[in-house]
Amino acid sequence: MKWKKQDIEQYVKAKEYIDTAIIPLVPFSMGSTDDELTSLTYQNEVMDLFVDRVEREYKGRIFRLPSYTYTKSSNLENEMERLNSFYEEICKQPFKYVFYLTFDSKWKKFEKGLGGHLLWVPVMKDGDLNSEETQKLLVDQMEQVTDLIQTYWVE
């Protein structure tokens, strides 16, 4: 499910089945070096493709929420508080599993303070999204992430 009218109409009729929410955590910056800008936008694109695909294959159980965007330089302790208020908001619907998907390794340290599960996935800094090798790598990574999500479902 996506944060779209058409999907929400389906969601409200079948809430009990869609018990998993996924939020991409996306850093944003305009003040970085040009190289860093390239890598941030590249990673943002990868994240979009990544989450879109997860959502497409598991449409009936995973809800893809809007991305959580934060400035790259901001203090993650404050961001954690704000993210936890997102979490409280999400829990107003009957979600059992909330996942944060990020390429930003800085979150790893704050994992314990977060409601929900953090999935940190390493990613290349730059690359060509149209190349077959990159696509293969991404599909492979995606399968590993969805396998991990499925282990939560089994419990």
């Binding site: 389906q10 079948a14 089945y17 869609i18 497409r56 294959e57 598991y58 449409k59 009936g60 159980r61």
Partner: peptide, 8 residues
Amino acid sequence: TCTHLGCI
């Protein structure tokens, strides 16, 4: 496409 809720 699953005819239940659209998973693959």
